[in-house]
Amino acid sequence: MQITMTVNGKEMTREAEPRVLLVHHIREGLGLTGTHWGCDTSNCGTCVVLMDGQPVKACTVLAAMAAGHDIRTVEGLANGATLDPVQQGFMEEHGLQCGFCTPGMMLTARALLDKNPDPDETEIREAISGQICRCTGYATIVRSIRWAAEHPATEEVSV
């Protein structure tokens, strides 16, 4: 079937079987490999993307279900050369090691900050509790998100 959705602000249409998962559609159909996957049972959260601004596990949403919706992936976090404060926070505070869980963590962080610009440690921990990081032990992720909360104005970073 033809599936059209808005991905990072661009309307994209691709052909896909109804059973294609959103995560596969994004990665393989649209070639945006920043979104990862890590489990079979909707537990790990490495596949998190924003659907209409809300974090969802893209392995548990059909591409067909996302048709007509607004999807934001890690590739859509930065505004050109300007990183989102969340991205910068993760670099400043060592919020990532292998980087595999990072896109999902950052997108959840972005959604959290959009809703609650000044979250405390507990609120941050709760917000990311559906996502597993095997590397960092979370404290630096919490600090990264706090960093972003404290630096809402994006600074110019050229990468």
Partner: peptide, 21 residues
């Protein structure tokens, strides 16, 4: 020192095995 590898990871530009086509 901030990590040299981070800019690509935070942009979703890491290149993991399943990304290879």
């Amino acid at each position: 020192l901030q990590r040299k590898e981070d800019p690509r990871f935070v942009r979703g530009k890491g290149h993991y095995l399943d990304d290879i086509v």
